[in-house]
């Protein structure tokens, strides 16, 4: 018995050691990014290269530059506007779709759901050419709000799929009672289905927020004006200036961009796990 215990303890220690090692490898790139953002631009090609800057060389000048000189606020607010609009609209339309598809037997259900699955299979970027043409026809090129319908359309399949799964699990009896009371579809949707499905909607919204917050290829294709750029394009733009890259600025801006995301992630961790696992375990 004793030896078994010993083996167990050894196993545990090994587990923790491996996990700790993994964690170090996971976080090194991020720590390096932060440490680079804290050193002066001139020290970037110092020899030997350092993982941490010298203590006395630590500086906030990159952050000062980003906050004062660049259009960071504008880019930040642009990203906030686009992301929040996307998640709000996506939550509204896809929860309604999920409610109808999950709770009622319409003839078109199969067809609609088939299309939803189909579009989940095709990588989004493959459609960039016809979507660009569409944006041109609708005059959505170089319009900040013009990003929103495209983002909403992108996240609808995944959102509907997830929320539908949740709606299906709402017991029929709860709704049955309302029907007998003569409630309308709208009432049942807003009073019963929505509140019950709110955890699913919340976790889907977090994913949608991330999608919209970090989207790069599409925004980079349709947005031109500096004042309409979202954060990813702004960062890429800082980098893209050839001949000398000011990594300090790039990474200071990156850190500032990541803060809201990491905060949301840590605060809403529970919803994250829920959203992720709902799809996978069900299959």
């Amino acid at each position: 018995m004793k030896s078994l215990n010993g083996a167990r303890i050894r196993g545990m220690i090994l587990r923790y050691l491996l996990l700790a090692l993994g964690t170090v490898i996971f976080t090194l790139p991020m720590i390096y990014m932060i440490s680079t953002s804290l050193r002066p631009n001139g020290a970037l090609y110092e020899y030997p290269p350092r993982f941490f800057p010298k203590w006395e060389a630590l500086t906030l000048e990159n952050y000062g530059y980003i906050l004062n000189q660049s259009k960071f606020y504008v880019n930040f607010l642009n990203s906030v506007f686009v992301s929040l609009s996307t998640i709000t609209l996506a939550a509204a339309v896809s929860s309604a779709m999920a409610f109808v598809l999950g709770k009622f037997k319409l003839k078109a259900n199969k067809l609609i759901f088939g299309f939803i699955i189909l579009t989940m299979i095709i990588p989004g970027t493959t459609m960039i050419v016809p979507q660009f043409e569409l944006a041109t026809k609708l005059n959505l090129v170089n319009q900040l709000w013009g990003l929103i319908p495209f983002y909403v359309a992108w996240v609808i399949p995944f959102s509907t799929f997830m929320i539908k799964g949740f709606m299906e699990n709402i017991p029929g009896e709860i709704m049955e009672a309302s029907w007998i009371d003569g409630a309308s579809v709208w009432t049942v949707y807003t009073r019963i289905a929505l509140p019950l499905a709110s955890p699913a909607i919340a976790s889907v919204s977090i994913f949608n927020f991330l999608t919209a917050w970090e989207e790069y290829p599409w925004a980079n294709t349709v947005i031109n004006d500096t004042s309409k750029r979202t954060l990813p394009i702004a960062i890429a733009g800082f980098f893209g200036q050839h001949q000398f890259t000011q990594w300090g600025y790039v990474f200071a801006m990156s850190v500032l961009t990541l803060i809201p995301v990491v905060l949301i992630f840590i605060l809403c961790q529970k919803f994250f796990v829920q959203g992720l696992t709902a799809g996978s375990v069900k299959g």
């Binding site: 660009f132 944006a135 041109t136 005059n139 090129v141 170089n142 294709t221 031109n224 004006d225 500096t226 733009g237 893209g240 200036q241 050839h242």
Partner: peptide
């Protein structure tokens, strides 16, 4: 609006197509 050199060229071509 500042674009990177090569990107400015591409953006002009594409914008011609999209009336932008």
């Amino acid at each position: 609006v500042s674009h990177e050199w090569a990107e400015l060229h591409d953006k002009v071509l594409v914008s011609a197509k999209s009336n932008a």
